[in-house]
Design a protein around this nucleic acid. Structure first.
Length: 644
RNA sequence: GCCGCAGUAGCUCAGGGGUAGAGCGCGUCAUUGGUAAUGACGAGGUCGGGAGUUCAAUUCUCCCCUGCGGCACCA
């Protein structure tokens, strides 16, 4: 007999060889019905896999979050089975569950198309209907390799070869079909249900390495019931409406065209938003002790050779030359070396540190064509860049201040959920191991001291130093890096930056590279998606439209608009010969936060009827002109100016 | 850069080997109205670019460009 401890602490006795399924049946029939898998001593376990001695067991049901992962993984398996049955010349590789669904990577000469989806989905449904049991089997390593090779599954054989010798090789069978897999799986295919849908095909490199073969990936989504699936599909549809590229057109913010691939043409509304953001940032930076500078766009190639960028990023740099001079200039891909030049002018003392030099730095990078994405990834962009030159002792304090400033700025822009990643030394890097040890330890310590939650992102640091990256999500959940702070002991060395210490000796300063918004372009993209274009009033390019009901009110409307403008509100008039319904609709669709409706009544009473975006016109405020100005001025004041 | 898909009016999209279609927008006229679309009329297109097949190509084939979804890359 074995003793099984349940999550509530109670203990049950079961015969040797019992499985979690036996346990579930023993507890209640209904539990056995909704059971998906179990966790045994904290490890995921198939329901039918026998327990190995006394254990702590928890039954995972369909309602648990974990259940979705298993359902998705199982769905990936049956998709692979369906694909191989329909297309026998296909090799399987890997197929994990991911956020909202799953994928499976296949190797096949002819790629799949979305037109194949219907047939694959039908075959999948058949496999579910057949209710085939999933069976786990542990195989000998060499036998498993031989078996997969015989089956023509070269990728699977390679995977097993690369597993550590100690790793048991588990195989999961569903009828005739089998796959190398860690598990766990449901008891049978019938338990998966049919709340799945194939979504898209994509290319993906074998093992994520571009030197390897390109496989065909099929993405699908799977849920525990139809209702969840429908809700998910609806959510995706809604999210697509918030796409910043779509909003950019609708709100007349910006456009792109072929002749300037990856570069933005900002229109009046978009540039207005852009300037509101930079003005806000300038106020925040000045208060935080930064000094703004401006440095050249074109610099001699020698300069980039010295910094190390030429070696690592030559292929991604735009270069320029002129007939009269035998020189190659590079368009700056980043600002750091330029800031070091400013630092290097004259002599710096320890008394000058920390020195914080900020620039809205216009940078150009030849980004791979396939990576361009609206405002999120462009070839010409502006960073809210700054470099803090400081001593080693000052790192912690500076990083702490930076994190606090960033959080406060993000809160003002309506972001509370920020993902933070700590990235350490990459394979290709400059500087000695000792310097890296020091830089990583300093940054990590400083990050811990600032009390932020970060995850570890090994090997993803900059070539000159480790970094903390701040990541925001777009409308459909894609992650974009925005803020960053990087701890650099290397560039000051390469570019010969120094200061005189209190010991009268020369020392190397540490350089903290940092950006809060990252690229203005990307940040605006994320911001627009976050607000679905309905940005808060202080950021709205057009804050208010005075819409008249009849042309008799035009004179009064003009008076109202002039008064609002004089009070600093970004107001316009709409005197067109259109019905008020039409005007309200158009400006609502245009995402103008406030519409001031004026007609004969308002003129007689000296009032305005304010209608606020997103409130369906239910709550309209009829105020005197003076009251309206007071209210709107308050609403339109940037958050930082309200705090002073 | 790699794999797949797409490109038709200012926008969103339908169509399909033989004078090119809709809705919205735009222009003109009528209408002066009370909180999400007033009506009528009109203008607007080398169907992304190039080559090929064909009596005939926007439609079929190939190449290129750009965009979209992934992958890879991201100082």
């Amino acid at each position: 007999m074995i003793n099984v401890t349940l999550p509530d602490g109670s203990v049950r006795e079961l015969p040797d060889g019992s499985s979690p399924m036996d346990l579930a049946v023993g507890i209640s029939k209904s539990l056995a019905k909704v059971a998906i898998i179990a966790t045994v001593n904290g490890q995921d376990w198939d329901l039918k896999r026998p327990l190995e001695g006394d254990s702590e067991v928890a039954i995972v049901t369909r309602k648990d979050d974990k259940a979705l992962e298993v359902i998705r993984h199982d769905t990936a398996h049956i998709m692979a089975q369906a694909v191989q049955e329909l297309f026998p010349d296909t090799q399987v590789t890997i197929g994990p569950s991911v956020e909202d669904g799953f994928y499976y990577d296949f190797a096949r000469d002819e790629p799949f198309s979305t037109e194949d989806f219907e047939a694959i989905e039908k075959r999948m449904a058949k496999i579910v209907d057949a209710d085939i049991p999933f069976e786990r089997e542990v195989m000998d390593r060499n036998e498993a390799i031989a078996m997969f090779e015989k089956m023509g599954e070269a990728y699977k054989a390679e995977l097993i070869r690369d597993l550590p010798e100690s790793e048991p090789i588990s195989i999961y069978r569903q009828g005739e079909w089998l796959d190398l897999c860690l598990g766990p799986h449901l008891p049978s295919t019938g338990k998966i249900g049919k709340a799945f849908k194939l979504m898209k095909v994509a290319g993906a490199y074998w093992r994520g390495d571009h030197r390897n073969a390109m496989l065909t990936r099929i993405y699908g989504t799977a849920w525990s019931d139809e209702k969840q699936l429908k809700a998910y599909l609806l959510r995706i549809e809604e999210a697509e409406k918030r796409d910043h590229r779509r909003l950019g057109k609708q709100m007349e913010l910006f456009h792109f065209q072929e002749e300037a691939q990856g570069q933005v043409f900002w229109h009046p509304n978009g540039w207005s938003l852009y300037r509101l953001i930079t003005s806000y940032m300038r106020r925040r930076l000045e208060k935080a002790g930064y000094q703004e500078i401006k440095t050249p766009l074109l610099m001699d190639r020698k300069f980039w050779e010295q910094s190390g960028h030429w070696d690592k990023y030559r292929e991604n740099m735009f270069i320029s030359s002129i007939d009269q001079e035998d020189k190659v200039l590079a368009v700056k891909p980043m600002n750091c070396p330029c800031h070091v030049q400013v630092f290097n002018q004259g002599q710096k003392s320890y008394r000058d540190l920390p020195l914080r030099l900020a620039e809205f730095g216009s940078c150009h990078r030849y980004e791979p064509s396939g990576s361009l994405h609206g405002l999120m990834r462009v070839r010409g962009f502006v960073q809210d860049d700054a470099h803090i030159f400081c001593t080693i002792d000052q790192i912690t304090e500076e990083v702490k201040d930076f994190c606090a400033l960033l959080k406060s700025v993000y809160a003002d822009f309506g972001f509370s959920e920020i993902k933070i990643k700590f990235a350490d030394r990459p394979e290709q890097r400059v500087g000695s191991e000792e310097v890296w040890d020091m830089a990583e330890a300093s940054l990590r310590e400083a990050a811990e001291a600032s009390g932020i939650d970060f995850e570890y992102n090994p090997g993803d640091g900059a070539f000159y130093g480790p970094k903390l990256d701040f990541v925001l999500k777009d409308a459909i959940g894609r992650e974009w890096q925005t803020g960053t702070i990087q701890c650099d002991f290397n560039l000051p060395e390469r570019l010969d930056a120094s200061y005189v210490g209190d010991d009268n000796d020369r020392h190397r300063p540490v350089m903290l590279h940092r950006a809060i918004l990252g690229s203005l372009e990307r940040f605006i993209g994320v911001l627009l998606e976050n607000y679905a274009g309905k940005v808060p009033m202080w950021l709205a390019p057009r804050q208010l439209v005075v819409a008249t009901i009849t042309s008799e009110a035009d004179n009064y409307g003009q008076k109202v608009c002039d008064a609002l403008k004089a009070a600093g509100i970004r107001a316009e008039t709409d005197f067109r010969n259109e019905k008020i319904n039409y005007k309200v609709r158009e400006h609502s669709v245009g995402k103008v936060p406030v519409i001031a409706v004026v007609g004969r009544k308002e003129e007689e009473e000296g009032t305005v009827a304010l209608r606020f975006l997103g409130e369906g016109g239910k709550k309209q405020d009829v105020l005197s002109l003076e009251e309206a100005i007071a209210k709107l001025t308050d609403m339109g004041t940037p958050p930082d100016m309200k705090r002073v």
